[in-house]
Design a protein around this nucleic acid. Structure first.
Length: 589
RNA sequence: GGAGUCUUAGCUCAAUUGGUUAGAGCGCCGCCCUGUCACGGCGGAGGUUGCGGGUUCGAGCCCCGUAGACUCCGCCA
């Protein structure tokens, strides 16, 4: 046995007992004579003390110890001298007077200190196993475990079965780029790593499972972001004989259990619901951060007869005029104006009109075009006050909303509106559009995925080919402006599914080769079903108060998808390629 | 593929307007120190200022290029 106690176990009640501890040297304080060491293991810290008068040999050895050496110590639990107790430590009333020291392993000079923030993420990722010793990451991984455990316990309690689905699966044309795995036994053919267990979970429903879940690894070969890694984890759920309301209640219950278990807090449920049109129209985003207002206000009717040509012509051609009030932002700098204009342009605006309210005056080159009626409409709907700043967007509805939505987020960031907020704002966004026209490819794409059920009231639109107007029976859960989950009720009828594939431009032949098994399954008595999937990494990130999912994964990849620690991806031996029947197109330089 | 920010000692950072030998704290090495808890004191080692080029009497600083990191856009059914 390496130890009799962990490093957060000994208390005043243990005084005079013998104990053996093992762990890392967190810090050492060498007084030449007496030497103190804070010994750390995953449970906490215990001060151990070496005294020459107690054991000269061991004390002499102790002078050579360094931070992060791994040692085992045996000794007597003693009360600290009066006045030297440390209230900052749970073990602060006692110390271990060492009589025997075993050095289990030494540490070379450290690549970076563990007791300070390190900015260089490259270095942290290269020495990830070392970085994991820091309280930040160990706390995050513990919270992640609590979230996963609460998820399993809750769903188990609701009668769900955790079922694994294949990692080696089939490439499909829709969606993200697949990671491919060449097949050795069938040269020239490939597996794909799953982007999500979507088809498998639907087939489990056909299989009569009724209630399935999985904490599933998913893979997408797309560019990375602070909240996107090529492999990530979903809490994947599917259930038969459900309406959206059933899914909402289940998801709310699960999130409540997760937040209770991880943060010890009760979250208010049911969550408010916004339709997609409401969310985008009011906040300029389908994942609105509602912890601050700065709502979009529509002025299309007010400017219908405007003498300001830009507004007038936009409205005449079916566009809208909307605005936000950036409260107290009239002191905006030239640089910030440029930045805002750049954001507007980046998201499709032709320009950015704005008005400063300063010294009781409306300052802007466009104010001269406005009538009193137009001004009072602005005044009223935006509740204008001294020091405010109005941003306008005049464009097609979706462009105008997105532009103001992006400006809204940037202004809030500059003003620090959510900086110290502890608020947890959950909501459902419902009634997403079913299809979106891709003008580059000149085809309709599924907004959610091809298996999403059209809204029952909009089925007639399918026959009329008014695809852009169709709503989906799809929903997202949003927390503080981050999409943490999304799902839909699925199509379970083979004919409707085939029709959807056709709309998406998937030929009859492709349907058979790529989705034949699914269509066939639907002809053998598929129950109505639907589900939802949560991004576990993003959820844990929010629970931990982190800005990046890399901070809640044990071994994340960098921006280029590389693991700096193990140096993957890496070249492979030519024999491996030969076995797979592969040849590289270009010789590596 | 595009935009932005950044890159100075092992780590975190500094270096006035372009001006002498690029500094500090932590860490490391050596010596001292018997009640500290971020212990303290004295001394020492450690630098091609990411890389390449240019302007200049003189470049860490200005210009051009390039590499890398991060953030965002595109992309992510």
């Amino acid at each position: 046995m390496y130890r009799t106690h962990h490093c957060n176990a000994l208390r005043a009640a243990n005084i005079h007992e013998q104990a053996t501890l093992a762990g890392w040297i967190n810090s050492r304080r060498d007084h030449g004579g007496v030497i103190f060491i804070d010994l750390r293991d995953r449970a906490g810290l215990t001060q151990i003390v070496f005294r020459p008068e107690e054991n000269a040999e061991v004390a002499a050895q102790s002078h050579h110890l360094r931070d992060e050496d791994v040692i085992q110590v045996e000794g007597r639990v003693a009360a600290r001298l009066t006045g030297t107790e440390n209230p900052k430590l749970e073990t602060g009333e006692i110390e271990l007077v060492v009589s025997r020291l075993t050095i289990l392993n030494r540490a070379e000079p450290l690549p970076f200190p563990l007791d300070a923030e390190v900015a260089n993420e490259d270095l942290r990722l290269t020495y990830r196993y070392f970085d994991l010793r820091r309280p930040r990451l160990s706390r995050n991984l513990r919270l992640r475990h609590r979230v996963a455990k609460a998820t399993r316990d809750y769903l188990d309690g609701q009668g769900f079965l955790e079922i694994e689905t294949p990692i080696l699966s089939k490439s499909t044309p829709e969606g993200a780029r697949d990671f491919l795995v060449p097949s050795r036994l069938t040269n020239g053919k490939f597996y794909a790593l799953p982007q999500a267990p979507q088809q498998y979970k639907q087939l489990l429903m056909v299989g009569g499972i009724e209630k399935y879940f999985q904490i599933a690894k998913c893979f997408r070969d797309e560019d990375l972001r602070a909240d996107r890694q090529p492999e990530f984890t979903q809490i994947d759920i599917e259930e038969s004989f459900v309406r959206p309301d059933d899914i909402y209640a289940l998801a709310e219950g699960m999130l409540a259990a997760i937040f209770k278990a991880s943060r010890g807090i009760d979250i208010p449920a049911p969550f408010p619901r916004l339709t997609y049109r409401e969310a985008v129209g009011t906040f300029g985003s389908d994942k609105p951060d509602r912890r601050f207002a700065m709502k979009l206000a529509d002025f299309t009717d007010d400017f219908r007869a405007s003498s300001f040509k830009v507004f007038r012509s936009t409205i005449d051609s079916g566009g809208v005029v909307t605005a936000i009030n950036a409260k107290g932002f009239a002191g905006i700098t030239i640089g910030q104006v440029d930045e805002m204009a750049a954001i507007a342009k980046n998201f499709g605006a032709k320009g950015l009109a704005f008005i400063k309210i300063e010294n009781g005056e409306w300052k802007s080159p466009i104010v001269k075009f406005f009538t009193d009626a137009e001004k009072s409409a602005l005044q009223e709907k935006l509740a204008l006050e001294e020091g405010d700043l109005i941003f306008f967007a005049a464009d097609k509805w979706d462009v105008a909303c997105e532009v103001l939505g992006r400006l809204r987020l940037r202004v809030a960031e500059i003003q620090g509106l959510t900086k110290s907020s502890e608020e947890l704002d959950f909501l459902w966004v419902t009634d997403f559009p079913l299809l979106q026209f891709d003008s580059a490819e000149q085809k309709w794409n599924a907004v959610h995925h091809p298996f999403t059920r059209p809204h029952a009231d909009d089925l007639a639109l399918l026959e009329e080919k008014r695809f852009g107007e169709m709503r989906a029976e799809a929903y997202d859960v949003v927390l503080n402006g981050v999409e943490i989950g999304g799902g839909s009720i699925r199509i379970h009828e083979p004919d409707l599914q085939a029709k959807m594939f056709a709309v998406l431009g998937i030929s009859e032949e492709q349907q058979q080769t790529q989705f034949g098994h699914l269509l066939r399954a639907f002809r053998l008595g598929a129950p109505p079903h639907g589900g939802i999937a949560f991004g576990l990494d993003r959820l844990v990130m929010l629970i931990c108060g982190e800005q990046s999912i890399r901070e809640v994964m044990a071994f994340p990849k960098n921006n280029r998808g590389q693991d700096l620690m193990s140096q993957s991806p890496s070249e492979v031996d030519f024999r491996q390629l030969r076995d797979l029947g592969l040849k590289l197109a270009e010789e590596k330089k």
